[in-house]
């Protein structure tokens, strides 16, 4: 592909990669936009960790019901076949490996799949973790969506995270505007690039990149 993916195209790509029939949790922020590109044919069931399967789109106008919110506390809707459950059941569902995919944002991801996305480590910051560590731990696949480079140009896919960890060895894929990376037992494999090449990425990154498999 000749140019970097836009945020919208990145969300569309993640949506396309989710297997039909999957149970999916989309994290707060950029991952939420993936829901805009899921198709009816995919028949994806969305989980929200405050206690619901079968979450529908954001509620507007008369649909708004203060008892029906998502994990970001945004009013949402329910789709036919939805179910409600308490918090311990909701997190047991995640921790127990029943969700197929969780999509999260990140500050950093390490080559071995460590995730840092909850705390900058700034000493004056008030820490807040929410469900970040639970989400990272339980899903069969954890996809991260992020920019590959920070504003200062340093890569965010790194040999070892410098930010406080959210989870160890949990990320399986990293979707960025420059490339999609598969974190495999052999190492970090580039699945595809957008507006760049493996060689160019390798020159800017501190981890060994493996070429796509045919």
């Amino acid at each position: 592909m000749s140019e970097k993916l836009s945020r919208e195209d990145l969300a569309r790509l993640v949506a396309q990669d989710i297997q039909p029939g999957s149970f999916v949790n989309l994290g707060i922020g950029q991952p939420t936009s993936v829901s805009n590109y899921l198709t009816a044919e995919q028949d994806i069931t969305l989980h929200t960790e405050n206690g619901m399967l079968g979450m529908g789109p954001e509620a507007h106008g008369d649909e708004i019901d203060q008892d029906l919110i998502n994990a970001g506390k945004v009013p949402v809707t329910e789709v036919p076949g939805a179910s409600y459950f308490h918090h311990a059941d909701s997190f047991a569902m995640m921790r127990g490996g029943h969700l197929d995919v969780c999509v999260l944002g990140a500050f950093q991801v390490s080559a071995t799949g460590d995730l840092a996305n909850w705390h900058t480590g700034a000493p004056d910051a008030i820490p807040a973790v929410g469900g970040a560590m639970d989400l990272a731990t339980g899903a069969k696949d954890v996809y991260v969506m992020m920019s590959l480079f920070a504003k200062d140009g340093t890569p965010k896919l790194v040999p070892e995270c410098s930010y406080p960890l959210t989870g160890v060895g949990c990320v399986t894929r990293v979707y960025t505007n420059d490339a999609v990376f598969l974190l495999t037992p052999e190492g970090v494999r580039v699945r595809e690039t957008f507006g760049t090449t493996l060689e160019e990425l390798q020159s800017k990154m501190d981890i060994k990149l493996l070429p796509p498999t045919e």
Binding site: A88, F91, V129, G130, G131, M133, D134, G138
Partner: peptide, 25 residues
Amino acid sequence: LVPQGNLAERIRAAGAGIGGFFTPT
């Protein structure tokens, strides 16, 4: 500060008479 699922499970454990549990989170 407690991860949300650990918070829920710790509360559940109290009500269920569980003295502690090992969690990956």
